[in-house]
């Protein structure tokens, strides 16, 4: 029966649906975070405009959780999933289960809607069935959230929040180190996203250190690998050197880990060891000094929203230098045949 096959399909693609939800959530975070941060400039002013900006920012920040749940469900069940997703997301927000609740709720409501759509009824009933589906799936998942998973999730979020607000220096460094390992590991893949998702979840609790750590480590892999090609050009192919020349500035401006991929691709293991080490160093420093970032933006705009720009610069620079030196050391003791790689690149 196609039921089993479809279920498998939709679950195998959970990652895709989750990413879709996050993709639609990013702009709302940007708007909310940016306006909220801008309004901080007017803390000492009485002008009405700052209050309005602050309020708009707050709307954005309170809406990103439902937005994500809605579009996870939308990605799974198409249009019939959208409304249930929003309702479940708002509910998750209100019952204090927050980001995690919305993630779970969005996936569940999307899945149930999707499965209900598969039911085939006699023609007479089929058209009205379409109107019933969202109501049924919303009811099931909402009740489930409120009565079964809601309370434990809320306690979990609460204890997370307490844990972070009492984070010691060494605890912060350990947190930064772990996030660094994840962030440096796969250049914007699932591990990096786990760490940035976690940072966003923490921001939902008004804890900004994880986001600060994420912000600090995100540019370390590309900058580190670019710097490495400048330090010892002998160890790199012409394509890699050309790419590094044009992309270091881009990584500074736009701030993406993904920019590192072409530089790491040909020599994945050594590059990954180096970027993990670099991010570990950078993340630990950022965590130790409790670096906070108030807005989930990347690149240059970040610079204005750190609580301490010197910590940011310090952690990035030390991470970048670690990465560059380590990758060159590893490459110099290996026998990577540059000429052969260049030759194969030309023959393509």
């Amino acid at each position: 029966m196609s039921f089993v096959k479809d279920t498998k399909e939709v679950f195998r693609e959970t990652g895709l649906h989750f990413r879709t939800g996050v993709s639609y959530m990013l702009p709302i975070l940007l708007i909310g975070g940016l306006l909220g941060s801008v309004s901080m400039l007017g803390t000492n002013s009485d002008a009405e405009i700052w209050k309005v900006l602050k309020h708009i920012g707050e709307i954005g920040m309170s809406f990103f959780v439902p937005m994500m749940a809605a579009y996870i469900a939308y990605s799974m069940a198409d249009t019939p999933g959208l409304a249930p997703g929003f309702i479940v997301g708002i509910l998750a927000n209100e019952t204090q289960s927050g980001y995690l609740g919305a993630l779970l709720g969005g996936i569940l409501v999307g899945y149930i809607t999707f499965m209900l759509l598969k039911i085939e009824l006699p023609k007479l009933w089929q058209s009205s069935w379409g109107m019933v589906i969202p109501v049924v799936s919303t009811t099931i998942v909402s009740l489930f959230l409120v009565f079964i998973v809601g309370p434990p999730l809320a306690i979990m979020m609460e204890s997370m929040s307490v844990f972070f607000s009492n984070l010691s220096e060494s605890g912060g460094a350990a947190l930064g180190g772990i996030m660094g390992i994840l962030g440096g590991f796969d250049y914007g893949g699932p591990f990096s996203k786990t760490q940035s998702t976690f940072a966003t979840a923490a921001m939902d609790l008004n804890v900004f250190t994880p986001l600060g750590i994420t912000g600090a480590i995100v540019t370390i892999p590309p900058l580190g690998l670019c710097l490495a090609t400048f330090l010892s050009p002998k160890l790199y192919t012409k394509t890699e050197k050309d790419y590094a020349k044009s992309s270091w500035l881009y990584s500074l401006i736009a701030g993406f880990t993904e920019i590192a991929i072409p530089l790491a691709m040909n020599d994945l293991i050594r590059a990954t060891v180096a970027t993990v080490a670099g991010c570990l160093v950078g993340g630990s420093i950022a965590g130790f000094f409790a670096l906070e970032l108030y807005t989930p933006v990347l690149g240059i705009p970040q610079w204005f929203f750190y609580n301490n720009i010197y910590v940011y610069i310090g952690s990035v620079v030390s991470g970048v230098i670690t990465t560059a030196l380590l990758v060159n050391l590893l490459k110099s003791i290996s026998n990577r045949d540059i000429k052969a790689i260049e030759a194969s690149e030309e023959s393509i």
Partner: peptide, 23 residues
């Protein structure tokens, strides 16, 4: 092509495939 932020991966995939296709 599609990616989460729409800035890095979607562009890189498009460039890579276009290059290969034109070749």
């Amino acid at each position: 092509t599609s990616c989460m932020a729409g800035i890095a991966h979607s562009k890189m995939a498009a460039t890579a495939l276009k290059k290969e296709a034109e070749k």
